[in-house]
Design a protein around this nucleic acid. Structure first.
Lengths: 256, 256
DNA sequence: TACTGTGAAGATATTCACAGCT
DNA sequence: AGCTGTGAATATCTTCACAGTA
């Protein structure tokens, strides 16, 4: 999983590994939950458990941000929330446009998680003239013709593409030409973008195919070996959080 | 990103790296497109470009599957489609249930990409009694009470969770107890599962946060260095496909 | 005493570069 | 000549294990 290159030997120092960046939102979520329960401090062990990673990894990750913990005690929850938020750039407001207001686009627009973390849906855009003006999630849909103006007027630098695959590259080109430099792509297509533009993709079909691969292995093993569990598959055993999801790559919707 | 552990020193041989598995669906998609255009063979260079990876990586990936190419010529498209499909377990039918038929769940149910690759929506399940019986995407929604029976009657081993975060772990536990061994989680929560169960997650909020991190860096750089592009950000330059998505890291919808 | 922070070891993943086939 | 397949080099990521410190 991974998103568009690091481009940027850059300012040096502050070289946070991509794998670490991808986990920061996870830590932040866990910390936010602790914060809401007014928990003042947390150990790497506890926080790691809540985030579903192991504690050595978490400590190493935090070490790239600086030394924000206290030996013998743990981490101050509020302070860490602030530091990670700042590192992720969530202390500022990010206007976002969603292009393609079909089933998925509408679901994304309705999704509450946006506002919670500095992301604001600045506009919804669709190519269907019949959609124009209709409100979705309280925001009127605008026509693709005005895409460039919308981007510029709102200072949008992050775009979400939820169009059919066939339209995605064209939409992407227009977004980029208008000034968008980060794209979250839900269309099942590889997008070509210039250097300096980051793309992350989310693809339901790919995720299912990866699951099918492992599922198939399990089945093969069962019959090949001693088949420890006959009919219904492995039920409750040790219960521990496995690593979850692409980061990657990591990602969420459409076909191959 | 990555999904649940490899568990399984297993049968030895056939140790396909996880990173490779995560790319196979990408290759398959590109190959399917070529197949539809009746292209008979393709070189690693061409296919890599279509899939948005570099050719050395693609060749190395294919080398784990076996020697399916012809030196001096390239790969036979149809043959490769078959081999990759088989490797991914797509030559069989995978009944899938979707739990949580809100905006997102409905969008997933309506999503055509399912059927295309061996995945079949066997049932839609929701906790709201008012939803019961109502058809979504032509499939009647069933009540959570019958979850276990539905899983067992349909031989479901893959479950998709699109419930609110608060309900996800409970739904997950019931799915697992009923025999599901692979879960695609759209709820913004870490799921705890027993060994042997794979979880992949898709999380809109995380993807946006990762983009914001990089976006912030770009802005900082611009003012710090010589600011090569003043107002509107970097527009069309070289245009090349960057690595895209979490695998995956993966991954697709909800808040932190 | 109970934790963090981190070098060093180990595991994975990517890329190079070229030998070997067709 | 034109391509694949792959060892070897490199880069990145994870994990161990423990010194250091509040």
């Amino acid at each position: 999983m991974a998103t568009g290159r690091t481009h940027r030997p850059a300012t040096r120092s502050r070289g946070i590994p991509e794998a670490t960046v991808a986990r920061l939102p996870l830590y932040l979520r866990a910390l936010t939950a602790l914060s809401e329960r007014s928990v003042p401090t947390v150990s790497s062990e506890e926080l790691a458990a809540a985030a579903g990673v192991n504690s050595a990894k978490l400590r190493k990750d935090f070490s790239y941000l600086g030394s924000y913990g206290t030996r013998g005690v743990g981490y101050d929850v509020e302070y860490l929330v602030y530091q990670i938020s700042r590192e992720l750039g969530l202390t500022q407001d990010w206007p976002v446009v969603i292009v393609g207001i079909g089933n998925l686009g509408a679901a994304l627009a309705n999704y509450g998680g946006f506002a919670s973390r500095g992301f604001r849906v600045a506009a919804l855009i669709d190519a269907d003239p019949a959609m124009a003006g209709k409100p979705v999630a309280g925001i009127p849909v605008q026509h693709t013709d005005d895409l460039e103006k919308i981007i510029q007027d709102n200072g949008v630098s992050i775009g979400v593409i939820a169009t059919p695959a066939g339209a995605a590259q064209q939409v992407c080109d227009r977004l980029v030409a208008a000034g968008v430099t980060s794209i979250l792509n839900f269309a099942p297509t590889v997008l070509n973008v210039p250097d300096g533009v980051d793309v992350r993709k989310v693809d339901l079909s790919i995720e299912l195919q990866i699951l099918a691969f492992h599922e198939q292995r399990k089945a093969g093993e069962e019959s090949a070996a001693d088949s420890p569990l006959p009919g219904a598959a492995a039920a409750a055993r040790k219960a521990s959080a496995a690593d979850q999801g692409p980061d990657g790559d990591v990602p969420a919707v459409m076909p191959a």
